[in-house]
Design a protein around this nucleic acid. Structure first.
Lengths: 249, 249
DNA sequence: CGTCATGTTGAACCACGTCAACTAGAGTGG
DNA sequence: CCACTCTAGTTGACGTGGTTCAACATGACG
């Protein structure tokens, strides 16, 4: 695995640890860390995999932001999910032969490629990890459900607020946000593709959110100035993120 | 299991068989069929499970149509998926403690309840079935991705066309549609909730599709009069359904 | 100091929503 | 067999959130 990481600071190990419903044994952690991983670097706005690919490997994001997207025949793009370090955006390819979406970088990214066969071998020696990985894919699906609600039933203003709530909460959970502020390297065009809006309208909506004193987004950095207000407007209920902190009892 | 079914005609057994990437052994089929299942009946438009439930069992749809939905604080409803006989709409609850969505019947439904523990026991004795079940949840997630694109980037006319393409294709795959015609028991209000539109606009769009000679929907029955035309307008690419027929290498 | 991507603005337009009334059928009861 | 009711579907007039197009501003970079 990447020499630059220790077992306890490796983003993917931490991610699995943070979502597993059981406490990982030292052995399981070591096995995860020992997954043979080929590191690769990508610039911003590059495809990592494309729709209709038939990959024999999957990857984990070690550094940077990536997004999952599709294009319509009419030439429009829709982003369906954002991924942050520790995520494994194409884990689904383990059981779905053909990719039904592309994955692109947002910022420059470092990824770790893992052969499907290595993952399957891991599951054979450590069956509990298969459950944890399954749960990873189920949490991703839960986010997709909330995005459908967000795009289908919220206006631009509350929709954007909700997206920011989600991103800040997720980034805080992996230590990439403090005090409701985080790096957010996407352009307004990409935000538009994620929200099902146009660039122009994203721009105006962003200004509304700013002049309402809720958030500022400039220079690739998001600052939430009024977290209470933002979550109230968005109607943000973090249950769907299935973070352990919201799932207690 | 439900006395009224034989192993080879049981909707759920057929479903698992139809999506598994391997051929089920007689033993595996028998084990699936032998899952202890408690049958229950529901009238139309009833909740089967609710958001925030913490179920210790999941269920398969034996008869009827169901939908997965969420409500916003503003009181709007968004349907995120439709489910047909053979599906297991809340399989996710096996690894996610808290449900982040409700599931309601559309038409009268018969369901088969299965304890989580029984499913886990099944996986222990038949490990390959765990892979097949995982794949089930991944296919559901693939549909969610396409719905995001549909709602985010298509206009009412093409959006509705796409939904009809999906439903007809899925229903044909389980033998519930012939000649691009099938029962579709949902009201226009429910269609609106699925498409992120209002009832009024669904009504008008439906009339447009009909007067274009593409489909007719009346009395709970959908008939596609011009399949080529409908798929062309919708830009329908069935890859995302991950049916084996479209996945052949 | 020019170039290129990204962000910003204004004015016109339209897809879709809102409101409110009306119609059609499918039970139900007398 | 008809009146009563309830739900689903239909229609029209009007309002608006978001798009479109096109111009202009800004800032990073070489």
């Amino acid at each position: 695995m990447a020499a630059s990481f220790q077992p306890d600071t490796h983003p993917f190990v931490r991610k699995v640890e943070s979502i597993a419903l059981f406490t990982l044994s030292a052995d399981e952690k070591a096995a995860l860390f020992a997954l043979p991983m080929q590191v690769a670097d990508f610039g911003p706005r590059q495809d990592i995999v494309r729709e209709h690919d038939r990959p024999s490997q999957c990857f984990t994001l070690l550094k940077g932001f990536a997004c999952l997207y599709k294009s319509t025949p009419a030439g429009m793009r829709q982003i369906m999910a954002y991924h942050v370090p520790g995520d494994m955006p194409d884990l689904q390819s383990l059981h779905l032969k053909v990719l039904d979406n592309g994955i692109a970088t947002v910022s420059p990214c470092r990824i770790g490629l893992v052969q499907h066969e290595a993952v399957r071998a891991l599951f054979r020696t450590h069956p509990r990890l298969a459950d944890a990985f399954w749960r990873l894919t189920l949490i991703d699906a839960a986010l997709l459900r909330e995005w459908i609600v967000n795009i289908g039933r919220r206006h631009a203003y509350t929709r954007m607020a909700h997206l920011f709530c989600e991103l800040v909460t997720r980034l805080e959970a992996v230590g990439l946000a403090q005090d409701h502020a985080c790096d957010l390297p996407m352009t307004q065009t990409e935000l538009a593709d994620a929200l099902g809006l146009t660039t122009v309208h994203v721009n105006r909506t962003l200004q509304e959110l700013r002049s309402a004193g809720l958030v500022t987004l400039r220079g690739g950095r998001l600052t939430v100035n009024d977290w209470e207000g933002l979550t109230a407007i968005a109607g943000f209920d973090p249950i769907y993120l299935h973070l352990k902190q919201f799932e207690a009892s």
